Simulated scan of single mutants.
Amino acid sequence: MTKFGYTLMTEQSGPRELVRYAQGAEDVGFDFEVSSDHYFPWLTEMGHAPHAWTMLGAVAQVTQRVELMTYVTCPTFRYHPAIVAQQAATLALLSDNRFTLGLGSGENLNEHVVGAPWPMASVRQERLIEAIEIIKALLTGEQTTWVGEHFRVDSAKVWDLPDQPIALAAAVSGDSSITKFSPLVDHLIAVEPEGEFVQNWDAARSSAGLPESRKIGQIPICWGPDKDRAVERAHELFRWFGGGWHVNADLPTPVAFDAASQFVTLDDVADAIPCGPDLDEIVEAVRPFWAAGFTDIAIVQAGDESQEQFLAEAAGPLLEKLRAASA
């Protein structure tokens, strides 16, 4: 059965609000919750960027059932992989083993803040592979020393570990990343409903003798009682998507995203993101994900000011429709 999640969007809400929304999302029936992990919002209008790990620690204390996940953390620039391993272990303990560590190769928007040069995509993937190996070694509880091409670790040990292994997931964007990451992690993350990604991922894991994994996707929506206002809100906050991830990964600041998205129109956004009160329209927008083989799909509701109304009025009926359609 397909699982449906709620996105804690750190770029558009403050930490206290996110903790409140997390509790509401569990109450209304979402299966899991994912959190973005940014230092900057994509656009100035979004207005927020609290520390995801601190917020998730609080979320772990106000929820009891939902799975939690970073979607995604980059463990190669702003965070050293040894620190990510420690953070993941602590959050797994605080959440009673409800945590999955979602990892990716990062965006310049968030990682430039530490002053490191931003390399080409192939190098970013090399760094992520090495980081995953370090994280996996540390999560065994063994003292770890590592001298690699990109990272050094000196006699590190994670002292507080959960009693169950922490699942790792990696964000992929094509065949190259599928080949590299499918044998290293437990689950796939992707934001496009590409059936070929899922098939190639499953084939790669099967040929390596690895068990079947979860395929975790994400889709933005902008539910609201007034369709025109919902389109305006989606355009104001989510027009940054227009450049695609291969462009977005390299842009350094919200000002750059604003410039890159200046020609994205209201119609462009309305064509790409289901907006307004029609829950059946939202279901049809989500359908390609489970049709492509995704097992888990996280919903992103655009706009901080709309979250409480969405959770109170729309989320429950939407989940009913999504579960009936996906079944």
Rank of each mutant, 00 (worst) to 15 (best):
F4D: 01
F4H: 08
F4L: 04
Y6F: 10
G14C: 05
Y21S: 07
A22S: 08
A25Q: 14
E26P: 10
V28Y: 12
W42A: 00
M46C: 03
H48T: 00
H51C: 03
L56I: 10
L56N: 06
A60N: 00
Y71N: 12
F77M: 11
R78Y: 14
R78H: 11
P81C: 07
V84F: 03
A92G: 04
L93R: 13
L103E: 05
S105R: 08
G115C: 06
W118R: 03
P119R: 10
A121C: 05
V123D: 15
L128C: 02
I129P: 02
I129A: 14
A131T: 07
I132G: 07
L139Y: 07
T140Y: 09
F151C: 06
V153R: 09
Q164N: 09
P165M: 06
I166C: 05
I178C: 09
T179S: 11
D186S: 10
H187R: 15
L188I: 07
V191E: 04
V191H: 13
P193S: 13
E194D: 14
F197P: 04
V198E: 02
R205I: 02
L210D: 02
L210E: 06
I219S: 13
P220I: 00
C222Q: 08
A234Y: 11
H235N: 07
L237F: 10
L237T: 01
H246S: 14
N248F: 02
D258E: 14
D258H: 10
P277H: 11
E284T: 02
A285Y: 09
A292Q: 04
F294D: 03
T295C: 08
I297D: 09
V300G: 01
A314L: 13
P317F: 12
K321C: 05
